Amino acid sequence: MPITPLHLGLGASCKGIGNQHFSFLIFSGVQMLMDIEPLLGIIFDWNTLHLYSHNLIGALLIGLFAIPIGKAMSEFCLYHLFKQIHWQITWRVATFSALTGSFSHIVLDGLMHADMYPFYPFSQTQFLLNLIPYSYIFYGCLFGFILGGILFLLHER
């Protein structure tokens, strides 16, 4: 399933720990950008779903692309939708959040997808696959989401 919410557990944990030093909105946006390729692959019935965007070079390019767009869109949402007038995302926070989102996506998907090659185009080795059982990843991300939410709420109090 493309655009899986599984990755958001890590983002919620980072937000809960980092609070204003991490943007969950930018992290979430990067997760969606990363999964455009698999979504198109499902629509157009491609043999490989995780090739160009799901490697270190693709993750870096998507992360860099997402920094200015994510910063602007997140600040717009924080101001207009959530009425957070005092909250501005610094370039440092935007960069850290976007790159954390793109590179963590590579690691998590590498543990689950056989057609994902982290070092493509230099190597088509998939060394992360089945390194950790899927249930550990799933429940770890679920626990991270819950823990991150609790920590975020504690920060907001």
Rank of each mutant, 00 (worst) to 15 (best):
I42N: 11
L78K: 14
I69T: 08
T100R: 02
L111Q: 06
N47C: 01
S104Y: 08
Q84T: 07
W46A: 02
M116H: 03
L40T: 12
R92W: 10
S53Q: 04
A59T: 03
I106L: 12
Y117N: 00
G101T: 07
I57K: 12
I89N: 06
I43P: 02
W87S: 05
S104P: 05
F127C: 08
S53T: 14
S123H: 13
L108G: 04
Q126T: 11
L128S: 05
A94Q: 00
D45L: 00
Y79K: 15
I67N: 07
K71Q: 12
I62A: 06
F82L: 14
F119P: 02
L51R: 10
N55P: 08
T48W: 06
I43M: 11
T95M: 12
Q126R: 11
I69P: 02
G110H: 06
L78P: 03
A94N: 00
M116W: 02
W46V: 05
S102L: 13
L60Y: 13
D115M: 01
A59N: 04
D109G: 06
T90C: 06
Q126W: 03
L99P: 00
H86R: 14
F96N: 01
L60P: 01
C77Y: 15
H50Q: 05
L78F: 14
W46Q: 08
N47I: 00
I42R: 12
L56E: 07
S102H: 08
W87L: 11
W87K: 09
L64I: 15
S104T: 15
K83W: 13
S53M: 09
I62R: 03
W91R: 01
P118T: 09
L111K: 04
N55A: 11
A59H: 01
I57M: 15
A94V: 03
S102Q: 08
Y52C: 07
Y52R: 09
H113F: 12
Q124K: 15
G63N: 02
W46Y: 09
I69H: 05
R92V: 07
K83P: 04
L40W: 07
A98M: 06
F76A: 15
I42W: 13
